[in-house]
Amino acid sequence: MSAGQQAAGAPATMTAGAPVLPSPRSEQAPGLTDGDWQPVLAAIRGASSVDLVCHVLPDGDALGSALAAGIALRSLGIEVRVSFGDDPQVVPGSLEFLPAQDLLVPASAVPERPELLITFDVADPQRLGLLRSRAEAAATAVVIDHHASNGGFGTYQLIDPAAPATAVLVDELLRRLGVPLDRDIATCLYTGVATDTGSFRYAATTPATHELASRLLATGLRHDLISRRLWDTQSFGYLKVLAAALDRAVLERGAADGLGLVWTWVPYADLTAHGVLPEEIEGLIDVVRKASEAEVTLVLKEDPDGSLRGSSRSKGAVDVAAACGALGGGGHVYAAGFTSHSTVDTTVARFRDALPPH
């Protein structure tokens, strides 16, 4: 039994006598036309091998989207490699249940000039890390993403900022390729959608998002076990890092035009002291953002080289993508990030000053 099957629990319902699943809806990707999809479909159908890559420190939407596509393309007889550009390449513990991780290869195993390379959830080529040069050298590069800040790199772009997750676009890709949902594909897609909608709590969630979730659940996956792994399972070391970050948190009630900013930071020394990997603290911001006095949240995480990775969230009244864009990053209105090589105080001041009026 695979790790994905263990997470899913119950047998798949795609068997004889099972209820017929509702057809996927093209409304899942309203910002894209047939003209956008056709050259991508032709490139995939004509490829003998495809490299599927997501951003460094992948979250559930990035890795889930890439693996779902990998399972689908493998079923079509296409040679597939899935990768991300970290060294060492470590799958976050919260995503170890995802199926088809036998498709994963280190960045060094991706050809220097891929025949066809597809990126998932990558808003900027810099987020490809060690794989950026491969994407730039690919004979054909396809970008599948939902970030409004995506500048449109690559040969073809399937970018829809209205989509709540990249996984939504992958679902539409599979529909157009004629690949039916099975439980493994559904587990990957559900992980992506649940991750980027905050378990369907964020404002980008639409009726079509719930319709997609219904189809995915109908394959027999165990959404309760997936949710437990994504949000409710952490190491004791993480709790110690979280405690220190909360103790370090600062509330600035006058920031963001009086709507409030809460921020904190995590020195790399905290991670090493408690044996915590950088990817383990990605969800820390979801705890800090609960402060009722602040519309905007910022968490800075120090990397080994001393640089700071900033993650920001908005509850809806402030466009944090604009603020992060001013610092060289990007993302969504409600969630965005950037990298800084300045001190913590300077970085917070720059972010605060960049917050647009509401």
Rank of each mutant, 00 (worst) to 15 (best):
G77S: 06
V90A: 09
E112R: 10
S65Q: 04
P267A: 11
R350F: 06
A72M: 10
A123R: 11
A165Q: 07
S75K: 14
D145E: 08
E136W: 00
W37C: 04
V276Q: 09
G310M: 07
Q6F: 13
S65P: 02
W37M: 10
G329V: 03
R132P: 03
E96P: 00
G275H: 05
V82S: 13
G330S: 13
V318D: 14
G328K: 08
V91T: 15
R132W: 00
R201G: 03
L158N: 07
A335C: 10
A294D: 10
L52F: 03
G220I: 03
V90W: 06
G129I: 02
A29W: 03
P39E: 10
W37Y: 15
V320C: 02
R248N: 13
G31W: 00
F338S: 04
R253L: 11
V320N: 12
S48K: 15
R248W: 10
A66G: 03
S108T: 14
E112Y: 00
S48C: 09
V193T: 04
Q157K: 07
S235N: 02
L181W: 09
T13E: 01
A43T: 13
T197M: 02
A317C: 04
P207R: 13
R201A: 14
A167W: 01
Q5C: 12
V20L: 15
Y190H: 11
D353N: 15
T119L: 01
V53G: 01
V276G: 12
V276P: 05
V168P: 01
E295P: 09
R350A: 15
R74I: 05
A256G: 14
L251A: 08
V82Q: 04
A62Q: 01
G129W: 03
A72H: 10
L52Q: 05
A141Y: 00
W37I: 09
T13R: 09
E295I: 03
A256Q: 13
L259C: 09
L128S: 01
S2I: 08
L327V: 12
L98H: 08
V262F: 12
H332T: 00
D319R: 01
V142H: 13
P304V: 15
L95G: 03
G283T: 14
P161V: 01
V142W: 06
I226N: 00
A349Y: 15
T140M: 11
E280R: 11
L221N: 06
A135W: 00
D51T: 04
S307P: 02
K240H: 06
D182H: 13
S227A: 13
A269I: 05
E295G: 11
D171V: 02
L76N: 06
R313M: 09
P164V: 08
A69W: 03
R248D: 08
D182V: 15
F84N: 04
P180L: 15
D124A: 07
T339F: 06
P88T: 04
A322F: 13
Q234C: 08
